[in-house]
Amino acid sequence: MRQLIKGNEAVIYGALLGGATHFFGYPITPASEIAHAAASLFPEAGRHFLQAESEVSAINMIYGAAGSGARVMTASSGPGISLMAEGISYIAGAELPCVIVNVQRAGPGLGNIFPEQGDYNAVVKGGGHGPYRNVVLAPDSVQEMCDFTSRAFDIADRYRTTVFVLSDAYIGQMMEPVSLPETVQHGQRKPWALYADHDSRRNLITSIYMSPAAQAGHNWQLQEKYDRIRSEITDWEEIQAEDAEFLFVGFGISARVSLTAVQLLRKRGVRAGLLRPKTLFPFPAARLAQLAAGGVRKIGVVELNEGQMAEDVELAVRCSIPVLRYNWMGGEVPTTTELAELAIEELKRPDSPQEPVTSRNHRHGHGDMLYGKV
């Protein structure tokens, strides 16, 4: 089946077809359509929807339902995700599978409702207390909003982990044709969950370990799981990267703008390419290192933040080639022409592998002040 829908609505179609059984959440712009669609479609499909009184309540409902074996999800934007941070850490510590969608908006604080990617560090590096990681999927289309959400439930159950679908206001609000999966996936009984029956009565779900040795052992087991995740599900897309001398790296809307810039540069005879991480954790560091050791002269990391993913790119290439930071914030988005001109200007400069240059491009704007709660 093919439908023209918003990215936020595609999340719910993907969730239902991926076997989601429960949605707990609280609406927030620019993610509100996810809760609205869930309120309609989950009950129609015989699943369960509940609007919590707050994001704090929603994430704790996720904890309880996940512990009872349900396939659970929530969705929010930056301010709401911040409120969920403690609960997410508890869920990660208890190794409970769940799916969380974050449609990013500008911050910090209340910020505004326009697109930004400033939640990268908070989501990719953890977000709450303790040494844990989230699997993070980064869609760049409405189709992937559907597909990645559906896939997220399988990953969550397979590794007993939190899985984020990290989007932005552009991808969440745009409308595109989507091909929906023809079959519905269903979760299986989980041997570790609490079903209030004889077979599960001895199961224990907790994130508290009262001895240093027990806590250390648990944390090392978590790290072993994250290493296994790195080796098994790292994913990315390459476009004309094999012969590229200038490589863009971006995710979400930044990747889409970068792709059009690549096409424009190729028409002008510039060998440009794009690497788009589909998983932000695990990050495709090894592939970036390979490209840096090949013919790529310079990398331009395009982000709607101050350069958060650029730090991971710099670590991946280990200062072997220059990594340029092209950053916009506050809800501003670069044009394809701007990116193409930045790449051309940079390629005119001599290569200096021993002393890579890290530069920033800030596009300043003056928007209207927005008052009131959104």
Results as ranks from 00 to 15, higher is better:
residue 316 A to M: 00
residue 351 D to C: 14
residue 212 P to A: 03
residue 249 V to H: 00
residue 259 L to C: 13
residue 140 D to W: 06
residue 34 I to T: 11
residue 130 G to V: 09
residue 126 G to K: 11
residue 123 V to Y: 04
residue 51 Q to C: 14
residue 98 C to A: 11
residue 345 E to Q: 12
residue 343 A to R: 08
residue 228 R to N: 12
residue 189 R to A: 00
residue 13 Y to M: 07
residue 362 H to D: 15
residue 339 L to T: 02
residue 365 G to H: 14
residue 313 V to P: 00
residue 19 G to S: 03
residue 250 G to H: 03
residue 84 M to N: 14
residue 70 A to D: 03
residue 7 G to R: 05
residue 67 G to L: 02
residue 297 R to A: 02
residue 39 A to I: 15
residue 346 E to F: 12
residue 373 K to A: 10
residue 117 Q to T: 06
residue 210 M to K: 03
residue 138 A to M: 02
residue 128 G to Q: 10
residue 186 H to M: 06
residue 197 D to E: 14
residue 26 Y to W: 15
residue 273 G to S: 09
residue 345 E to D: 09
residue 37 A to C: 15
residue 65 A to F: 00
residue 203 N to V: 08
residue 154 D to H: 08
residue 122 A to R: 04
residue 283 F to P: 01
residue 262 V to T: 13
residue 23 F to L: 09
residue 152 A to W: 02
residue 99 V to H: 01
residue 10 A to G: 11
residue 34 I to H: 02
residue 27 P to G: 06
residue 97 P to A: 06
residue 117 Q to V: 05
residue 87 G to D: 04
residue 72 V to I: 06
residue 194 L to N: 09
residue 291 L to T: 01
residue 78 G to A: 08
residue 140 D to T: 09
residue 139 P to L: 07
residue 316 A to G: 02
residue 354 Q to W: 03
residue 16 L to V: 05
residue 331 G to N: 10
residue 357 V to C: 12
residue 334 P to Q: 07
residue 243 D to W: 07
residue 236 W to D: 05
residue 342 L to N: 04
residue 354 Q to T: 12
residue 157 D to Y: 02
residue 332 E to A: 14
residue 265 L to R: 09
residue 71 R to M: 03
residue 288 L to G: 00
residue 181 P to G: 07
residue 37 A to R: 05
residue 289 A to R: 01
residue 251 F to V: 01
residue 114 F to D: 00
residue 281 F to Y: 07
residue 12 I to D: 01
residue 140 D to R: 14
residue 141 S to Q: 06
residue 200 S to Q: 07
residue 369 M to F: 07
residue 127 G to P: 08
residue 74 T to I: 14
residue 101 V to I: 15
residue 223 Q to T: 13
residue 234 T to L: 07
residue 232 E to L: 12
residue 197 D to N: 15
residue 155 I to W: 04
residue 144 E to L: 07
residue 48 H to W: 05
residue 148 F to Y: 15
residue 146 C to H: 04
residue 164 F to E: 02
residue 291 L to F: 04
residue 192 W to M: 15
residue 71 R to P: 00
residue 177 P to T: 14
residue 222 L to G: 06
residue 298 K to T: 11
residue 222 L to V: 06
residue 326 Y to M: 14
residue 293 A to G: 08
residue 16 L to H: 03
residue 354 Q to E: 08
residue 187 G to K: 03
residue 279 T to W: 05
residue 137 L to D: 01
residue 35 A to F: 13
residue 310 A to I: 10
residue 305 N to W: 11
residue 50 L to W: 12
residue 192 W to Y: 15
residue 214 A to Y: 07
residue 136 V to W: 04
residue 333 V to L: 13
residue 54 S to Y: 13
residue 108 P to T: 10
residue 292 A to P: 00
residue 165 V to T: 05
residue 155 I to F: 04
residue 351 D to W: 12
residue 141 S to H: 14
residue 10 A to R: 07
residue 146 C to Q: 04
residue 257 V to S: 06
residue 281 F to P: 00
residue 318 R to G: 02
